[in-house]
Design a protein around this nucleic acid. Structure first.
Length: 493
RNA sequence: GCACGGAUGUCAGAGCGGCUAUGAGCGGGAUUGCAGAUCCUGAGACCUGAGUUCAAAUCUCAGUCCGUGCUCCA
């Protein structure tokens, strides 16, 4: 079953192919570093992290490039507002970007180019576009002339020039600058007083936003590459502008072989935006929600569909994630050091362990099939969740060598799917931490243990009211008690 | 207005020609002093209309409703 991906330009799922066998060149539009990262950024980079992981798992050598836009109106404005140096602002926000993304278990890209390092390349492309007749210099900068390549208009959004012209109404005449047509976009912006500038053949200024990605992706990959991705909102005008620039400059069509776009995050049914005041920063959420639970909630949807983030979604994710961890932990505790080999799985078998192994194999295939189908992580999650019930049942039913061997298989199965691909499994060490080794638990461990000891006494005396009162006290500490035949265990809520 | 998506049980949301998932919620059972957790199990859905087909949630056409973009935005 080949990997299929939805290509925005062709508007359908296509068989995935690469220019070089076994190698994927992937460029994803990064953040403009003027502020903290929000939930939308998490969703986007999580989506491409999953794609990155699955391509690697499928045997591709992925070269993943993600840029930082480190010069832009918003950065300049923010620096002016806060009275700080724009370079400092950029460094701070890049540092928190990495902190947030690392916390979400997002694997690092291979390169993080910054656009201020590529101004020369941008100037060269701009000069070339002027020479080829696709761009012109005006008083306040250089603009790309969309009418010089009308056949490239609307390749991603499906809009045509005439429709936009009529739809834009009065704005068509008022270009708001010295550009000739309202559709034209800036390649180079002439300097305004007090702004950071670079020298160019058109005087001091700075590059336009769209040219950055063209320059950086081409520097990393050459004239053509396999995957270009980003948020759905970048479709127009950003990615369409890139098509104009890249294809007119190189003469290649297409420059990008597969366009991938992730869906947006809504909050309680409303679009998340700064103007509505309902955007959640990653920092805020991680104060309340475990990072892997947040990760789980965001990948438990197809990357192209919008997600409506709300309490219920987080609650569901927390519950599912807890089930995953508890089965993983149980398997880690039961697995043998040196297990006996397992029989071949067979769904039709009457022997429980053989049948179960067959089922797990089938679910692993289902998982791969889901990921191969345009990275359907939602379906893949369902396969993992479905497998958990089977695993949990078998782990209690089996005994002796069988359970040790089966448990090892479970551990590997989960690490292969939920761990390597979905990235929602903590490390073995973390899962196996004793309460006193977990810093969050350590501070209350002594108190909890003493309460538990008192409760055991009360329970042995069948003094239920006292036992329950103690349990209430523990709950108030945020502790959940589970009674087992071997005695009570506890965990943080 | 134009463009692009979508409409599936109480909710979230996969499936996209024959069987239907997954989780939450709700009902019953096992286990437990009780609760929780766990396991077993039940009920419950494919926007409307027409068409294609032996067979449609799935394909086609029409309609209705909804979302997003067309402006800086992941």
């Amino acid at each position: 079953m080949p990997l299929r991906v939805h290509d925005t330009r062709r508007r359908e799922k296509v068989d995935f192919s690469t220019m070089e066998p076994g190698r994927v060149k992937m460029y994803i539009c990064g953040v403009t570093v003027y502020d903290l990262c929000h939930l939308g950024h998490a969703r986007c980079y999580l989506a491409f992290d999953l794609i990155h992981r699955w391509l690697e798992k499928s045997g591709y050598d992925v070269e993943y490039v993600q840029n930082f836009t480190d010069i832009d109106d918003k950065i300049i404005n923010r620096a002016n507002e806060t009275g700080s140096d724009w370079r400092e602002l950029v460094e701070d926000n890049i540092a928190t970007y990495f902190r947030d993304m690392d916390t979400l278990n997002i694997l690092r890209a291979d390169q993080y180019p910054r656009c201020t390092e590529y101004v020369e390349e941008m100037i060269a492309i701009t000069a070339d576009l002027i020479e080829k007749g696709n761009a012109y210099a005006a008083d306040d900068g250089v603009y790309f002339s969309v009418d010089s390549a009308p056949e490239k208009y609307g390749l991603l959004t499906g809009q045509n020039i005439d429709a936009v012209r009529s739809g834009a109404g009065g704005r068509v005449d008022d270009t708001g600058a010295t550009k000739r047509d309202h559709k034209d976009f800036a390649l180079w912006k002439a300097a305004k007083p007090g702004e950071p500038t670079w020298d160019s053949p058109w005087g001091p200024g700075r590059p336009g936003w769209h040219i950055e990605c063209t320059a950086m992706s081409m520097d990393a990959f050459g004239e053509q590459f396999d995957i270009h991705g980003g948020g759905h909102d970048l479709l127009f005008p950003h990615h369409e502008a890139e098509i104009f620039q890249g294809e007119c400059h190189t003469g290649c069509s297409p420059v990008v072989h597969h366009w991938l776009h992730n869906g947006f995050v809504n909050i309680d049914g409303e679009k998340m935006s700064k103007s509505l005041g309902n955007f959640w920063t990653i920092e805020d959420i991680l104060g309340k929600v475990d990072p892997l639970v947040l990760r789980f909630s965001l990948i438990n949807a197809h990357y192209r569909s919008p997600i409506d983030m709300n309490e219920q979604l987080i609650k569901d994710a927390a519950k599912n994630h807890e089930r995953l961890i508890s089965v993983y932990k149980a398997a880690l505790e039961l697995m043998g050091e040196d297990p006996v080999p397992l029989p071949e799985g067979d769904i039709a078998s009457a022997v429980p362990i053989v049948k179960s192994l067959g089922l797990l194999e089938k679910m692993a295939q289902g998982f791969a099939k889901a990921m191969d189908d345009d990275f359907n992580s939602r379906e893949a999650c369902a396969k993992v969740l479905g497998a958990l019930r089977e695993m949990s049942r078998m782990l209690t039913e089996l005994d002796g060598d069988d359970v040790a061997a089966y448990a090892l298989h479970v551990v590997e199965w989960l690490e292969d799917t939920a761990g390597d691909v979905l990235g929602v499994l903590p490390s073995r060490e973390q899962v196996m931490l004793e309460p006193e080794e977990d810093p969050r638990k350590a501070e209350i461990a002594e108190q909890v243990e003493s309460l538990l000891a008192r409760r055991v006494v009360a329970r042995e005396a069948k003094d239920w009211p006292s036992a329950d009162a103690i349990r209430d006290e523990l709950n108030a500490l945020g502790v959940v008690v589970t009674d087992t035949p071997e005695g009570p265990t506890w965990d943080l809520n």
